[in-house]
Design a protein around this nucleic acid. Structure first.
Length: 562
RNA sequence: CGGGAUAUAGCUCAGCCUGGUAGAGCGGUAGUUUUGGGUACUACAGGUCGUAGGUUCGAAUCCUGCUAUCCCGACCA
């Protein structure tokens, strides 16, 4: 029956020409036997639809990523190039990340404040290497008034600003300017501040959450009396980021120092946390910089030491951004959409009543209300459970899939029989399927609430364990020559959208600098590779540098990256 | 910022080559149907065809500018 049915299906339906139609036609051809004779085309398609998303990670990872952002209701594009509208579900995730990190920032002695969005152009010219290293693509404000000319609203040409204002790409310069005034004596130090803000970088190519023109972040800026204090601060915040990534986002990371060529412009040293995405690429998820006295000298941030001498401050800066959400998507997402670690899930438990617009609905709703109240009284991870009862008048059957795609950790479906029998039907998002089948478990309602917190803890742990195994299992350490590494990653011409999962390589190197490092960089770039970081806490190096052949100084991570 | 592609209903897309004032599926609404779960049927609603111009008796369709999106490259603090 298969072939004939397929032909009929395709004939009876006018598939959109192009990729979508071809994909569906291919799917039909592959899974004919699962289509029942006489089925309507729509049902046939649905029975063929294996997953809640139309794209799989394997088929097209970038398209899958876009699909998750869209279908999980995280964000959408805005009318302005490269900017995104972060929707409530996506913003809710950000707020939870924010809350967790903000608490740690305060616990480590920092205070929040706010600096202006506009930075005088001349400020950016203050630190030479900062200026040089920066991409010049920025948003610049040059006028301050609009005017109606010939009935059209335009920029008033007579309103040019004396000095253009740059929309902050980062705040080192304007905060340094304040530090200069705030710091006089050694008694004023350290200064430990943080700000939650938006920044703008006129990126050439944008991607939702990963690289957008405007994004949200947190930037910490500190000034210290000594190098030791500033270095300690840099590493302390790096550790805060590691903990945030691993404990809150369940996203394991490699913690290390960036090589010279990957440093923040003007920094003496830059440290990062790097996460492995499901396509094997590295994502720089947070950075912490020791800026030495470079900015202090450029901006004259000095203090009088106890000895009476004037000394330059040692400064630091560190930040993480909404990019973390991109990391969460590509770390935990699956072919049914997003999977959120419970600690950052705006709703940890969603109750979906199976309403039928019948009188018995009232009883189901009462049952669900009670269940919600009971669950809301519990707490997990030191905070009240976030429980949502989805009463929306959407077809109840569709609601399940909406919540699956959004990645809510625990989904409870309550039908009339559940309500009558005192049961709940539970779906765990981290263990959604057994093969193609959805795993839903009927559990007695009594006592369920008390076990829910443990369940959430277990889901958080399971997601981390899964990602940790992927990270640990995909860092190649056996490649000791450049030829071996090049062969491992394959040619740059290979389409890496469809290429096999490669992971990272950890290899010994001699930490070359200057032109020698540039040569290494060029070599890597030809294969679309880059140096990620040199993991902290390494054992004594062994072997020879894969680039120079000299004795190795340390191990460095090499990967394709976002 | 260079090269390529695209922009038509809420969504995915036909229609454009060969100009004659708009189509499908999904989704939505209403009714019937179904009732442990992405039901089925019928009907209805929904679009100044991204935007500004040009050519033409007439433009979704041909031409130009602009804007946005996607892919490749460059860039990526």
């Amino acid at each position: 029956m298969g072939q004939a049915l397929a032909e009929r299906l395709i004939l009876n339906w006018q598939p959109p020409v192009g990729e979508n139609g071809e994909l569906l036609a291919t799917a039909i051809a592959k899974r004919l036997d699962s289509v029942e004779e006489g089925a309507s085309f729509r049902n046939a398609i649905r029975s063929l639809m294996q997953r809640a998303l139309s794209v799989t990670r394997e088929a097209d990872f970038p398209a899958w990523y876009q699909a998750v952002v869209d279908q999980a209701d995280l964000a959408e594009t805005s009318p302005v190039r490269g900017c995104m509208i972060i929707k409530p579900w996506g913003y809710g995730v950000w707020e939870l990340i924010q809350a967790a990190l903000d608490r740690r920032i305060r616990e480590t002695g920092h205070e929040n404040c706010y600096f202006p969005l506009f930075i005088p152009l001349s400020f950016l010219a203050q630190e030479a290497s900062h200026v040089e290293g920066f991409a010049k693509e920025m948003a610049v404000v040059t006028h301050h008034r609009l005017k109606t000319i010939d009935g059209k609203l335009t920029v008033d040409p007579d309103s040019a600003l004396e000095e253009p204002l740059v929309v902050r790409p980062t705040s080192e310069t304007i905060i340094g300017d304040a530090f200069r005034r705030w710091v006089n004596s050694w008694r004023d130090l350290p200064i430990l501040i943080n700000q939650w803000a938006n920044v703008v970088r006129w990126e050439m190519r944008t991607r939702m959450f990963l690289r957008t023109t405007e994004f949200l972040w947190q930037e910490g800026h500190t000034a210290h009396a000594t190098q030791a204090d500033a270095t300690e601060e840099t590493l302390k915040m790096l550790e805060v980021y590691r903990e945030l990534a691993e404990d809150i986002l369940a996203m394991p990371v490699a913690v290390g120092e960036k090589p010279e060529n990957e440093r923040f412009p003007g920094a003496v040293s830059t440290f990062s946390i790097e996460a492995m995405m499901q396509d094997g690429k590295a994502l720089q998820a947070g950075t912490s910089h020791y800026l030495g006295t470079n900015f202090a000298k450029a901006q004259n941030i000095r203090y009088q030491a106890a000895s009476g001498d004037l000394e330059y401050c040692h400064t630091t800066s560190w930040g993480v951004s909404t990019r973390l959400i991109g990391g969460v998507i590509m770390t935990h997402g699956d072919d049914d959409g997003l999977r959120l670690p419970p600690r950052i899930a705006p709703h940890q438990v969603v109750i979906v009543p199976m309403l039928r617009e019948k009188p018995e609905d009232a009883a189901i709703l009462t049952y669900c209300d009670d269940l919600r109240n009971e669950l809301s009284g519990m707490s997990a991870f030191g905070a009240p459970l976030r429980v949502h009862l989805d009463k929306k008048a959407i077809k109840s059957a569709n609601k399940r899939w909406d919540w699956v795609r959004r990645g809510t950790p625990i989904l409870l479906e309550i039908g009339p029989r559940d309500a009558a029998n005192g049961m709940v039907t539970m779906i765990r998002r981290d263990r959604l399927r057994d093969g193609d089948k959805i795993i839903s478990t009927a559990i007695p309602r009594s006592g369920f609430a008390t076990t829910a917190p443990d369940l959430l803890v277990d889901i958080q742990r399971a997601l981390f364990a899964e990602a940790k195994a992927r990270l640990d299992g995909n860092i190649q350490t056996g490649l000791t020559t450049w030829e071996g590494i090049a062969a491992y990653f394959g040619a740059a011409t290979e389409d890496d959208e469809t290429g096999a999962f490669k992971g990272w390589v950890r290899a010994p190197w001699a930490k070359p600098t200057g032109s020698e490092l540039e040569a290494v960089e060029a070599k890597l770039k030809a294969l679309k590779l880059s140096l990620r970081n040199t993991p902290l806490g390494q054992n004594a190096p062994t072997g020879t540098c894969v680039f120079t052949g000299r004795p190795a100084v340390e191990d460095i991570l090499i990967a394709r990256a976002y």
